[in-house]
Design a protein around this nucleic acid. Structure first.
Lengths: 97, 97
DNA sequence: ATAGAGAACTCTATATTATAGAGTATAAGG
DNA sequence: CCTTATACTCTATAATATAGAGTTCTCTAT
């Protein structure tokens, strides 16, 4: 990954917070809303972007007779996150030599 | 540093690229322009924001009889960069346990 | 049947912010 | 003076994040 080609997924607090939360496993819409403190509309919009970019998978089902949207990080999403962190580590490392 | 309070400095490619470039030492306006491929106006605007936020120090002088703007990372800027990377590492680390 | 509740959406308007690009100030050199 | 180079300021535009209202869907209760 190059410093001039940082994916949009990492360029807002909200999307980054969503990805971070998903690193530790599946989360539903409510959980993400609590974690990020975003409004329904905004969270929905950003989830859609992350899904379209292939970072997460969104699935819908009825759980306890209530609708539930669940989000999981894709292998690609996890990999990109890792590469992003590694790029930053590399830059920071260079500086300390 | 908290995932819900990521500094704005890290929320665009351009500012992040500037900070990254400065990790390895002082850079002048032209160098930053080449590295980031930004326009004069945009680079100037983002440098101003980074300066106002205390991440960098901008100084002006005449070098070889030409005006030269030089930018250096402040201790605060370096520290914040480090904390940002550490936060991401922590999040990534959690996920792998 | 029908009404109501809860979840999560869609849609639209607004606010914020990044960006481009023109114009400007400054100092040096011819 | 007039030109050149640098780096700025200013303004308009484009892009995009966000808020919030309204909608859809399914289940439950009456």
């Amino acid at each position: 990954m190059e410093i001039n080609a940082i994916p949009e997924a990492f360029q807002t607090k909200l999307r980054l917070a969503v990805l971070s939360a998903l690193l530790t496993g599946e989360k539903n819409f409510r959980e993400l809303k609590n974690i990020t403190e975003a409004t329904d509309g905004n969270l929905g919009a950003q989830l859609k972007k992350l899904e379209e970019a292939g970072y997460i998978t969104v699935s819908k089902a009825f759980v306890n007779r209530k609708p539930q949207t669940s989000c999981v990080l894709t292998a690609f999403g996890r990999q990109q996150f890792k590469e992003y962190v590694e790029m930053l580590e590399r830059l920071l490392g260079q500086a300390e030599e």
